[in-house]
């Protein structure tokens, strides 16, 4: 019998971070102007979780990583071309909206159902990974809601490190105020871990990993089940992005103190 973890990473796509985002009303409710034309990436918080999951799986024989992703199929397909080169995982795709205005409860219900339906699911080995935050909805509550629906009481948020111990137990470092970590010991799976940034760099592209991943990713995308999620009963009266001002100056040899001083002066002008 395998002693490794079944790590399920929840993560979807968000617009590439440098894109200019503008709220807009769509027939489906609030959204972003030209959202489907914007290039997308795997939500950076979820990406950290995925890389930590792959790292844990590599250190824990018998483990397996599954990425469960609810998003527009075409965008998932595109993003997986980049993500699929990084670390080994299996994909379970759900075809639905991934914007920041969808209701976390509806999303969580779909994701929880999909986790329950995973073939060979063994709760005693299940680690549910995801982002502590989300680049698309900030509140970052979906992961917690999924954990509750799966009746997993051990939840850790702001995780920066997981150290496996004997007999499936592990130690977790969670971020707390004051730039410190809280150390928790957990007897073992199942558990929910909402990752902060962790400590791993972004893995390099590996063509062999890509070739191996893609043999399963492409069929998974082709059979992605529809997962219509909406805005729940929330009515948005208006949406706006923060007002921004841009002044660009390229300076390469400025000391951090001088940069900070100039930023304070600039902010104080407002």
């Amino acid at each position: 019998m395998s002693t490794g973890y079944q790590i399920v990473v929840l993560g979807s796509v968000v617009p590439d971070p440098l894109q200019t985002l503008e709220p807009a009303q769509t027939p489906q409710g609030p959204g972003l102007k030209n959202e489907l034309m914007l290039p997308h990436v795997l939500d950076p918080w979820a990406a950290h979780a995925l890389y930590e999951a792959a790292n844990l799986a590599a250190r824990t024989p018998g483990s397996k990583v599954t990425l469960l992703s609810l998003g527009p199929k075409a965008k998932l397909q595109q993003v997986m071309m980049a993500v699929g080169q990084r670390v080994p995982f299996e994909l379970v795709a759900l075809d639905g909206p991934a914007g920041g205005f969808t209701d976390p409860h509806e999303v969580a219900a779909r994701l929880a159902d999909a986790v329950k339906a995973l073939p060979g699911l063994d709760r005693s080995r299940l680690l549910l990974f995801g982002g502590w935050e989300s680049a698309s909805r900030g509140a970052g509550v979906t992961l917690q809601l999924v954990g509750e629906r799966l009746e997993i009481p051990d939840q850790f948020q702001g995780v920066d490190q997981l150290t496996p111990g004997p007999d499936g137990a592990f130690e977790v470092l969670e971020r707390v105020e004051g730039g410190r970590h809280q150390v928790s010991s957990c007897a073992g799976a199942p558990a929910v871990l909402g990752w902060a940034t962790g400590s791993l760099g972004e893995p390099k592209n590996n063509p062999q990993v890509g070739m191996a991943n893609m043999r399963a990713i492409m069929p998974a995308l082709q059979k992605a089940a529809p997962a219509p999620v909406g805005t729940g009963r929330v009515e948005y009266l208006s949406v706006a992005v923060p007002r921004t001002q841009r002044e660009t100056r390229i300076v390469k040899d400025m000391s951090p103190d001088d940069v900070a001083r100039e930023l304070v002066e600039w902010i104080a002008q407002d």
Binding site: A74, Q77, Q78, M81, A82, Q85, N205, P207, G210, M211, M214, M218, P219, L221, Q222
Partner: peptide, 16 residues
């Protein structure tokens, strides 16, 4: 690229 990828017959690797 979406048409090509949907076929599942070829692989496209950006950033490489």
């Amino acid at each position: 690229s979406a048409q090509v990828l949907a076929s599942g017959a070829v692989q496209l690797w950006p950033g490489t």
